[in-house]
Amino acid sequence: MAHDSGPAAVRHGQRTSGWLTFAGTLAVVIGAFNIIDGLVALFNDDYYLVGDNRIMVFDFTAWGWFWLFLGIIQVAVGAGIVAGKMWARATGVFFAVLAAIGHLAFLQAFPLWSVLTIAMCVLLIYALTAPPAGSRG
């Protein structure tokens, strides 16, 4: 009598990782936050703390487009991570670093939101780099 050898992922030789599922979900959440940041920067400049509409080099309109495009890409990458795509893991690390640096520059405009997003980006980078090699979400 044959016994079931375990979950389908084990039978196909790939290990599943809860960290990658968490990372994919977190990438979608960070992407959604960045989309919200972008839409607010585009449609309501008075929402942010900086009064002269200048943060580092760009104005709120430029930052709005940056956050909007970055958020859309991060949502797509998050879906790829959950689907177990290796390209999405590498791309997710790159865009998490880019978002953390961007929020560091955006810190003066909205400090609490930026600090929260930077912390989530660091957690996302860890979740994407910690799982065993070859594991899927």
Rank of each mutant, 00 (worst) to 15 (best):
Tyr48Gln: 00
Gly84Asn: 03
Trp65Met: 12
Phe60Glu: 04
Asp45Ile: 04
Gly51Gln: 12
Thr117Tyr: 05
Lys85Leu: 13
Trp113Ala: 08
Pro7Leu: 09
Ala96Pro: 10
Ala8Gly: 03
Ala62Cys: 04
Phe43Glu: 13
Gly6Gln: 05
Arg89Ala: 00
Gly38Gln: 11
Asn53Thr: 02
Ile30Ala: 01
Arg89Trp: 01
Phe69Glu: 07
Ile36Glu: 10
Gly31Leu: 12
Arg89Pro: 04
Gly38Cys: 10
Leu104His: 10
Leu68Gln: 12
Ile101Met: 15
Asp59Ser: 00
Ala100Asn: 11
Tyr47Glu: 04
Ala119Leu: 08
Asp45His: 15
Leu107Ala: 12
Phe22Ser: 07
Ala79Ser: 02
Gly13Thr: 04
Val10Phe: 03
Leu98Asn: 14
Met56Cys: 11
Ala83Pro: 10
Trp65Gln: 07
Phe33Asp: 13
Ser17Thr: 02
Leu70Tyr: 05
Ala76Asn: 14
Asn44Met: 10
Leu49Trp: 03
Ser17Gly: 00
Gly38Tyr: 10
Asn53Lys: 14
Val40Ser: 10
Trp113Cys: 00
Trp19Glu: 08
Asp46Gly: 06
Gly84Thr: 09
Gly31Asp: 01
Ile73Asp: 13
Trp63Arg: 09
His12Tyr: 06
Pro111Thr: 07
Gly31Phe: 05
Ile36Tyr: 08
Ile101Arg: 07
Ile72Asn: 07
Phe43Val: 13
Tyr48Val: 07
Ala32Leu: 14
Ile36His: 01
Asp59Gln: 05
Asn44Ala: 15
Leu26Asp: 01
Lys85Thr: 06
Gly51Thr: 13
Gly102Glu: 02
Leu42Arg: 11
Arg54Thr: 13
Val122Lys: 01
Trp65Asp: 00
Ala99Tyr: 08
Gly71Trp: 05
Gly92Lys: 09
Gly38Phe: 14
Phe69Ile: 14
Leu123Asp: 03
Gly31Tyr: 09
Ile36Arg: 11
Val10His: 05
Gly78Ile: 06
Ile55Thr: 03
Leu39Asn: 11
Gly92Ile: 03
Phe94Cys: 05
Ile72Phe: 14
Ile101Glu: 12
Val10Asp: 11
Leu49Ala: 12
Ala41Ile: 03
Pro111Arg: 02
Ile118Lys: 05
Val115Ser: 01
Val29Met: 13
Phe110Thr: 13
Cys121Ile: 09
Ala41Met: 15
Phe106Ile: 02
Ala8His: 08
Phe69Leu: 15
Ser17Asn: 02
Phe106Asp: 07
Ala105Ser: 05
Gly84Leu: 00
Ile73Cys: 15
Ala99Thr: 15
Tyr47Trp: 11
Ala23Gln: 06
Gly64Asn: 14
Asp52Lys: 08
Asp52Glu: 13
Ala32Lys: 02
Gln14Glu: 12
Ala109Ile: 02
Met86Glu: 15
Gly51Cys: 02
Ala99Asp: 11
Gly38Pro: 13
Trp65Thr: 07
Ala62Val: 12
Ala119Ile: 10
Ile35Met: 14
Leu116Gly: 00
Ala9Ile: 01
Ala109Met: 02
Val57Ser: 10
Ile36Phe: 06
Trp63Ser: 06
